[in-house]
Amino acid sequence: KKYKVVEVKENKDGTVELVVENENGEKKKITLSKEELDKLKAGDTVELK
């Protein structure tokens, strides 16, 4: 499934919390490390299994 990044929030521990949404409007929260996030920004599309 493809999800669009709608919100990006940095946590104090250096991880980043993303809120992503698919075309049905379903939202998910995922947490990434700073390194994983470096290639993402709001409006990008991510694929989740």
Rank of each mutant, 00 (worst) to 15 (best):
Val20Met: 07
Val6Phe: 08
Lys27Ala: 07
Lys2Gln: 05
Leu40Tyr: 15
Leu37Asp: 04
Leu48Gln: 08
Glu7Ser: 13
Leu32Trp: 14
Ile30Cys: 11
Glu47Ile: 11
Lys41Phe: 04
Asn24Pro: 01
Leu40His: 07
Lys49Gly: 15
Lys34Phe: 11
Asn22Tyr: 04
Lys2Asn: 04
Val19Trp: 11
Gly14Gln: 02
Thr31Ile: 08
Lys12Ala: 08
Lys29Gln: 12
Val8Cys: 14
Leu37Ala: 15
Asn11Lys: 06
Gly43Pro: 02
Gly25Ser: 03
Asn22Ile: 05
Val5Arg: 00
Thr45Pro: 02
Asp44Ile: 06
Lys27Pro: 05
Glu17Phe: 14
Leu37Asn: 12
Asn24Ala: 13
Ile30Leu: 14
Thr45Gln: 03
Glu10Phe: 06
Val46Trp: 03
Lys34Ser: 11
Leu40Ile: 14
Val46Lys: 02
Asp38Met: 14
Glu36Lys: 12
Gly14Pro: 00
Glu23Met: 07
Lys12Gly: 13
Ile30Lys: 01
Lys29Val: 12
Lys2Cys: 15
Thr15Leu: 06
Gly43Asp: 06
Glu17Pro: 00
Glu35Cys: 15
Glu47His: 12
Glu21Tyr: 06
Asn22Glu: 07
Glu35Tyr: 14
Glu10Ile: 05
Lys2His: 04
Val16Asp: 00
Lys9Thr: 08
Lys49Met: 14
Gly43Asn: 08
Glu21Asn: 01
Ser33Asp: 09
Lys9Ile: 10
Val16Lys: 04
Leu32Gly: 13
Leu32Asn: 01
Leu40Pro: 13
Glu47Arg: 06
Leu32Met: 11
Gly25Leu: 02
Gly43Gln: 04
Tyr3Ser: 00
Glu7Val: 11
Val6Ile: 10
Ala42Lys: 08
Val8His: 03
Lys1Arg: 13
Glu7Ile: 09
Asp38Asn: 13
Tyr3Gly: 00
Leu48Cys: 15
Glu35Ser: 13
Ile30Tyr: 14
Thr45Lys: 06
Leu37Ser: 15
Ser33Asn: 10
Asp38Cys: 15
Lys39Pro: 12
Leu48His: 06
Glu23Pro: 05
Lys39Ile: 07
Thr31Leu: 10
Glu23Asn: 04
Glu35Leu: 13
Gly25Pro: 00
Ile30Phe: 15
Gly43Met: 04
Lys27Tyr: 13
Lys27Ile: 12
Lys49Glu: 15
Glu10Trp: 10
Leu37Val: 12
Lys29Ala: 12
Glu47Pro: 02
Leu40Trp: 13
Gly14Cys: 05
Leu18His: 00
Thr15Gly: 03
Val16Ile: 09
Ser33Lys: 14
Asp38Trp: 12
Leu18Glu: 00
Lys2Gly: 02
Ile30Glu: 00
Lys29Phe: 14
Glu7Trp: 15
Gly14Glu: 01
Thr15Arg: 04
Lys28Gln: 11
Leu18Tyr: 03
Glu47Gly: 03
Gly25Phe: 05
Thr31Gln: 07
Lys2Ser: 05
Glu47Val: 04
Lys9Asp: 02
Lys27Arg: 13
Lys2Ile: 09
Asp13Val: 01
Lys34His: 12
Val19Met: 08
Lys28Leu: 15
Val8Gln: 04
Lys41Val: 10
Thr45Arg: 01
Glu47Tyr: 09
Val16Pro: 00
Asp44His: 05
Lys39Tyr: 08
Glu23Lys: 04
Lys39Met: 08
Leu40Arg: 04
Lys12His: 11
Lys39Leu: 09
Lys1Asp: 02
Lys34Trp: 11
Glu26Pro: 01
Gly43Cys: 09
Leu40Lys: 04
Leu32Gln: 02
Lys28Tyr: 15
Val5Ala: 01
Glu21Thr: 06
Leu37Phe: 12
Lys29Trp: 15
Asp38Arg: 11
Val5His: 01
Gly14Tyr: 01
Glu36Tyr: 14
Val6Cys: 11
Glu17Asn: 07
Gly25Val: 00
Leu18Cys: 09
Gly14Thr: 01
Val6Gly: 01
Glu47Cys: 14
Glu7Gln: 09
Leu40Gln: 03
Glu10Cys: 14
Lys2Met: 13
Leu48Val: 15
Val19Ser: 07
Glu7Gly: 08
Lys12Asn: 12
Lys49Leu: 14
Thr31Trp: 14
Lys28Pro: 00
Lys4Thr: 06
Val19Lys: 03
Glu47Gln: 06
